Computed example of a mutant assay.
Amino acid sequence: MIDIVRTAQKTSPKSNRESNSEPSECTAEFLVLEPAGYPMASILDEYPEIADPGVFEHYAREQWNGCTAHKGDYLFDGRMYPDFAYKVSDVEPPGSIIGLDTHIIVRDTVVSSAPAIEFRSDVTFDDVIGQQSARRKCKLIERFLESPEKFGKWAPRNVLFFGPSGTGKTMLAKALANKAHVPIIPVKATELIGEFVGEGARQIHQLYERAQEMAPCIIFIDELDAIALDRRHQELRGDVAEIVNSLLTEMDGIVERPGVCTIGATNRTDTIDPAVRSRFEEEIEFTLPDEKERLAILESNVQTFPIPVTDIDLKAISKMTEGLSGRDIVGKVLKTALHNVIIEDRESVTQDDLLASVKKLKNIQPPSNADRMYI
């Protein structure tokens, strides 16, 4: 009926020593708690406010019934706010058991919000090879983040990055934040899908509230199609109307959040709900690298190899890797070749190693419909 909770010091040597001289089987007369927070900070933390002490006391007694309480222990909520911790600041008698008659008091310690967590990026535009059109369009966002007060209602609040996987959408967003000297909150869209009804909408609201505290700021939502699924496809993963409506509310600017820019990223524009897509004032396309850009990707990454390269022709490799993204070239061509050399205890990477990894990759590439899905 009630979730079993954990105490931090139940079996600690100190607690055992103390319990030798204290009653261990009697029921606590009263218990004084202090809100302690979550075990790990998160940008989406929400701290509980106790509206009715009587209701909370009844709930707490049932949840922690039978737990032994020592001063300094932590009691964890297992239902209302999972993993939220309360620290035992006093218990009488010491080391007694929480029962259904124990009087539980929560001190008026104010824990109004989690500390602002700023994600500063060290990625620069020099790290992004190619995507000249996307970089040019991003100058508008850069100007906005540098002086949001100048834009007013003309601010680029919602921008969509779209294109094949591995073409630098995340990197460019981080480089943009670095160039404008603002924090970026990177979020996987799947992290915003809650387990219970209403939880996903609450998390989106908290995300934007935190961004407002950090403004000017970028919210980068990767894999946007995971929460902004077209209603024609909703039967594939259940009803997402609640999440979509919450996101639309934030993107519409019904609640003013000056200086907050939402960048959504997807490689499946065909599955995004039209209502969500229409909220993006600007769409910026990312394309697969051409031969010159593939050569630049190869050259810049080979220079960072931990072992030497000998007799390699990167121009030939760049011609052979047509249709691959930058991430594929780095992760599936260069890294595969390097790892094979290390496994075989050889002293250098050769052209044959690169050719072998390209051949292996080309052989396993599945056929795709370029009009419907990106590689």
Rank of each mutant, 00 (worst) to 15 (best):
86 Y>G: 10
348 S>Q: 13
31 L>I: 05
137 K>I: 02
238 G>Y: 09
199 E>G: 02
168 G>T: 13
168 G>I: 15
14 K>W: 11
82 P>E: 12
152 G>M: 13
121 S>C: 06
170 T>R: 06
305 F>G: 00
69 A>M: 05
13 P>W: 09
87 K>H: 01
177 A>W: 05
323 G>A: 10
271 T>H: 09
265 A>W: 07
270 D>A: 14
274 P>H: 05
264 G>C: 12
71 K>G: 02
234 Q>K: 08
298 L>V: 03
355 L>R: 11
302 V>M: 11
257 R>E: 04
33 L>E: 03
168 G>C: 15
2 I>Q: 05
28 A>G: 00
351 Q>V: 08
26 C>M: 08
7 T>N: 07
2 I>L: 01
314 L>A: 11
246 S>W: 02
272 I>S: 01
304 T>A: 10
254 I>Y: 08
273 D>L: 14
360 K>R: 11
22 E>F: 09
306 P>I: 10
354 L>G: 04
277 R>Q: 10
243 I>P: 01
205 H>L: 06
152 G>D: 11
77 D>Y: 03
209 E>H: 05
299 E>Q: 12
64 W>H: 09
63 Q>P: 00
111 V>T: 14
151 F>E: 07
122 D>K: 15
62 E>N: 14
185 I>C: 00
238 G>F: 13
155 A>D: 05
110 V>D: 04
60 A>P: 02
87 K>E: 13
151 F>K: 09
368 S>N: 10
21 S>A: 13
37 G>M: 14
266 T>Q: 00
8 A>V: 12
359 K>R: 14
59 Y>L: 06
284 I>Q: 03
8 A>R: 15
343 I>Y: 08
176 L>N: 00
100 L>G: 00
237 R>P: 00
27 T>M: 06
348 S>G: 04
